[in-house]
Structure formats: C-alpha cells, structure tokens
Design a protein around this nucleic acid. Structure first.
Lengths: 346, 346
DNA sequence: AAAATTTACTGAAACGTTTACGGTAATTTT
DNA sequence: AAAATTACCGTAAACGTTTCAGTAAATTTT
C-alpha cells in the first residue's frame, strides 16, 4: 500500500516549498498561475488529499457529532437519526453513529470511543432510565450532550422528549369515550422507562374516570418489538373469563400481535375489542382495520435535538428542555361511533 | 467560555515539563508516583482532557469510514447500516453516515464532505444506476469504495448485491406453480435499476413458462414505498375486464396497497388473487394473510460490505464481488395448495 | 570511594497543515 | 535611473500531543 501523499511530496517533486504548495491548493493569494497549475497537476498525479486531522489541528475546528441509539433499524430511532442528520448536514456537521443494542456496556464503550475520537457533541437515546456512571463521567468532561426520548432522572442534561404519559392518557381516555368499559394494558419490563411512562398515563386515565385497575388486565411483555409476544399475551387476555373489551398496548408491534390473536379467536375489532397502540409505526396503517395509535414525531425530535446541541456547542450553559406534545391518531381499531373523525391514510 | 486546558497548563501549574505530564497521564514508564498524583490532581482540577485531534495526528491513526444511503429510515437500508456497524465496531472503526434522499446532487455533496474529512473508505448505496461523474472522480482518488445493492454498470468497483432478477423469477415461478395463470406486475420507474432487475426476472419467468406478457398487466408505480399508489394500481388491475389472478409487486409496501384494493373489491387472497411482494419488510407479516415475499438479508449484506471494504483498505487491489442468492419466503398470500410449506411467523 | 546503575526528569523532534512575515527579483512609477 | 511597488516564494512558527535521546541526581554495586 503506497503511502499517502502529503504536501512535502508535491513540494519535493517540483522543488518548491510546502508553503507554496499549500497556497496553490487552497487558492490563496501570492501564487503564480503556472506554478499553481503544476502543483495541481502533481497533486492529482500523486492522488494527494489533505490530511483532515492536521487541518483540524491547525485550524482548530472539528465538526463531528456522535449519535448513539439503542437500535438503528427500529423505525422511530431511524427517524430521529434522520432528523439529526437533516440539520447537521445543513450546518456542515458530520455525524457518526453508534448502536447500543440496548446494552449498557456497549453503550458505554461507544461513548468512550466517541470521546476518544473527540466528537464535539453527543446526542443519545440511553438504553436505561437510570443514570449510569458513564454518564456522570461524561458530564465531568463537559462535552455537550443532549438526551433524546429517555431523559435521565437528575436534572442536569438537556433533553428532547415526548410527553409519553399524556400520549397514553389520551389513548385510554379515547377508548373510554368510545364506550369501552374494561380496558387492559400490555406494557413492558419494569426497568423500561418508556413503558413505565406510558403505563402511568394508562393508570391515570383509569383513575380520573373512576375505573378501577384490574391487575389481571395488566400484562408485561418482555420484547416490545415482538408481534409474537403480543399475540400470546393478547390471547391470554381474550381467553380469560373476565376478558377486557379494549386493550392499550405500549407499542404498535405488540398491538399487531393482538390483531392476530383476535382474528384467531374471531373477536371483532373494533366491535368487541377496541385497540390503541403507540408510536405510529408503519405497521399501524397496514393492519385492518387500521390501528389507532399515538404519534411520535421522530424527525422533529431529532431536528430539535441537533438545534439544542448546537446551541450548547456554541457556548450556551443553560439546560435546554423540550417536551413534544402528545397527539393521538384515531383510526379504525378504536372507533365504534361514526362521529369520530377517522384519519385513515389509504 | 473557558479555554480548554492542555498539557502545558498542567505543566506550568506544577513547574514541570509537558513531557512529564504526558507520561503521568498516560501511565508510562519514568514517572514518580508522587508527581503522577499531583498531575492527576491538577488535571482533574483543570478538567483536562486530551485533544484527540492532536493525538490522532501524532499517532497517525484514523479509523473512520463513511456510509451513504438513499434513505436512513427505510427498513432495508437501516438493516444494511446495522450490519456495517456491527462489523465496524468490532474492528474499532467509526462510521459516519449520510443520507442522500435519492438526490444525486445531495449524494455528491455528501461524498465530497466525506472526502474532505478524510474517511478511509466508503460504503455507498447509490441513488442512481448510472455511473455519475462524481463516482469516477471518487475512483481517481483511490479511496476504497464498496457499492451496496445497486452496482454501477461498469466493472470497476467492488460491490455487494442481491440477485434481484432471480428473486423475482422465483416469486413468479412460484405463482405459476400454484396454478395462477394470469400474472400481473407492478414495477417502478424505468430509471430505477432495482425495479428493472426485478421486472426482468418477472419477464423471464413468464417466458420460460410459455406465458405471454400482457402489457396491460404491467403497471408502473412512481413511489415504491407508497401503499396508496399500490392501492390505486391494484384497483386498476382488479377492475379491468381481463383482470389478472395474481400480482407480483416489486416492493412489499405496494403489495400492502393491493391488499387494501382487494379487500375493498372483495377479492379473496389467495383464492382469487395470488400475491408476492419483495424485501420481506416488517409489513409483510402484518398483512392478513401474511404476504409471500423475497428475502433481502440487509444485515448480512452490510457485514459483507464492511469486510470487503476492510480488505481493500488493507491493500487488496482486487475487485471484490458478492451476489447474495435469492430466497423466496412463501406465506399465505400465494398458497392455494396446502402441500406448500408455509413459513408463517406467528 | 569510585564506578555502575537506576530513577526521574527535560529538551526537542515529529505528525501534516496553515499562515504571518521577510526577502528577492521583476515590474512600474517618478 | 533611482525609487517605489508588485508578484512570488521561502522560512519558520504554530496547533497539542507523544516519544526518543540525553542528563543530572540518587542509589546501588564493586
């Protein structure tokens, strides 16, 4: 493998100084047209391209941010990334991406890799709700940091999040409005903050409407991206003797599983069973009837996150916070009454 | 905004040389325990962290590759990225990502940004099938390059692709096996290489089975990610007087639209209409009956692409090529006969 | 106690650039 | 033709770090 050409190689080839070469390449003052031409020729010949590290060091500018997400092929996160990249590209920032796969250890190693590399800022959607020790370490170093979707509990980091509890609240109130009386919930693991937040909204909606929570109607789903798990739990709920007439699931994928269970058991949606999911993922419009769900504006959240990060990188010391308002998308899976405006897509 | 501390600041504070400070921080030989302690104390005090740019320059190590994809929130591409990142992370490479949004100009600007930054290699899934001029420029600079999914026509770049024509061929042969006699196709724009490749497989399958292609049964869909477009074209096909009894669509999303059309027109799938899509996207298992489709192993393709890139970065001058074999996933949407092994998921 | 070794440090070069500054030759002005 | 200007180029410092080679003092060995 040939060594990469540097300024000196061009300079030596033409018997001129590297300063002249540099000026020629950078189209600066004080350069003769013919030598410039020569320099460009030799540069092309030697396949020269500037060493960005050296340039960065000299110019003292490095425009790279890091984004770490639990899962890159998860629709919501990929839209967040899209939003970040939209804005970053416009501001001439490069974004390096890491995927933690919901593993705190991997998250930590990615963060350290990013730090070592010298990113000027980081946007992260943490795997866990609890502030891990590698976060405090991070903060000590004062690297601009913005959390997305899963703000940690202590009040030190800027964040962009979504009003998860209220989204769930709206979903369940809507089911109640539609006349459903016995509303179950399929939630996630207890250490999943997202699930907990949504579950709290569910509980609140029941409470405010004088409905008592039935412990048998609250199921825990290990893998919230698994249709199969949703199917199994949905079946459990629908086969119970005090079966619910509506189910709120904390993800659309789980709701898709419930569809399968309902179909197998010949339970009509929305007639015998109302259903609302969460995230407005692509699946929701492909189900039949289409699934009511809670919208999560990933792209906008990503864009806002980058804006925050940029403010911090430019020197702001404030803790920037934004909570996106919850918005319910009502579709066929939860509408027994025609009076509701049904926002079907097709 | 305070200036960032550097080695000299620590050195000055303790009246020692920066060399000593550096050794103390890096836990090297030739350092007294007490001075080391002092150095660490002051470093902490001043919030020192090494300038990674300077370190990179000095140590001459830069492990960054670029990945540019047409659309980051498209499931297939996000899995490709996942595969690339899996491998890259293991080899201690950082990956920066760019999204071209199917726009050649943006693709070009991203590529130039990457080049300027000095990535050591690039994996790209080009927007167009034709070799754009910014590609040749790219090649002249001899930056390691691997194409994914859409190899350009001239035989100069390494690539990882999928046997698209054969995937389509298998899909259509399967429909014929199932006894469908009049098989339509919903394809994409003529300048979409992917669509063309799949369409060619469709045509070949018809030809080999002595079925004549009916021009009225070949529809062009502008947006291959649009369920709505699929719905409209599906309706056209199903309302024609010589309506087909099966449809092969070049994406699953379009097939989902056809489901909607069939449901509206009360056409039974798979009884009256056989259906096979393409890509095995998440949608396919949420449709009812589940959609037969052609698998595209994005993660594996991404992993292979990184392996290729690494080989090239390590000095290989060969043009590396790999075509993944097509694999049909048979599900309910195309099985009229029970003899077929039906790989349903739920 | 002289010699040899070890310990703990410093100075300086190097990584590849950019750029302020100074200098020389050519050109223009007077 | 001398003076002033211009055009062009080279020298060297600087960015922040690592590390080699050298050195003085402290310690051990003889």
């Amino acid at each position: 493998m040939k060594k990469r050409a540097k300024l000196k190689d061009i300079a030596d080839a033409l018997n001129i100084s590297i300063a002249t070469v540099s000026r020629a390449l950078n189209d600066k003052y004080d350069i003769n047209a013919s030598t410039k031409k020569e320099v460009l020729r030799v540069a092309e010949e030697l396949n020269y391209r500037p060493n960005p590290i050296a340039v960065s060091l000299r110019k003292n500018s490095y425009n790279v941010i890091g984004v770490v997400l639990p899962s890159i092929d998860h629709y919501f996160f990929s839209t967040v990334l899209k939003g970040v990249m939209n804005k970053a590209h416009k501001s001439n920032y490069l974004v390096i991406v890491g995927e933690s796969n919901h593993d705190p250890d991997k998250e930590k190693s990615i963060l350290e890799q990013f730090l070592n590399h010298g990113v000027t800022g980081v946007i992260i959607s943490p795997t866990m709700g609890k502030p891990a020790e590698h976060f405090s370490k991070f903060r000590n170093k004062r690297i601009p940091l913005v959390l997305v979707d899963r703000p940690l509990v202590d009040d030190v980091d800027s964040f962009v999040r979504y009003d998860d509890p209220n989204g769930a609240f709206l979903a369940v109130e809507h089911l109640i409005d539609q006349g459903y009386k016995s509303i179950a919930c399929i939630k996630g693991n207890d250490n999943c903050v997202i699930s907990n937040a949504r579950y709290s909204g569910y509980a609140k909606a029941l409470g405010q409407n004088n409905l008592t929570e039935n412990p048998k109607h609250v199921k825990t789903c290990i893998n919230l991206d698994s249709k199969k798990d949703g199917y199994l739990l949905g079946k459990q709920l629908l086969l119970a003797k005090d079966k619910p007439d509506a189910i709120f699931t904390v993800t659309d994928e789980v709701a898709a599983g419930v569809y399968a269970a309902a179909k197998e058991l010949k339970v009509d949606i929305p007639g015998e069973l109302g259903l609302v999911g969460y995230s407005n993922s692509k699946v929701s419009i492909h189900l039949s009837p289409q699934l009511s769900t809670v919208e999560q504006p990933g792209v906008e959240m990503g864009e806002e996150a980058f804006d925050f990060l940029q403010q911090i990188m430019l020197g702001s010391t404030e803790i920037l916070k934004k909570t996106f308002d919850a918005r319910l998308i009502v579709r066929g899976s939860s509408t027994r009454h025609a009076t509701i405006n049904n926002m079907t897509i097709v």
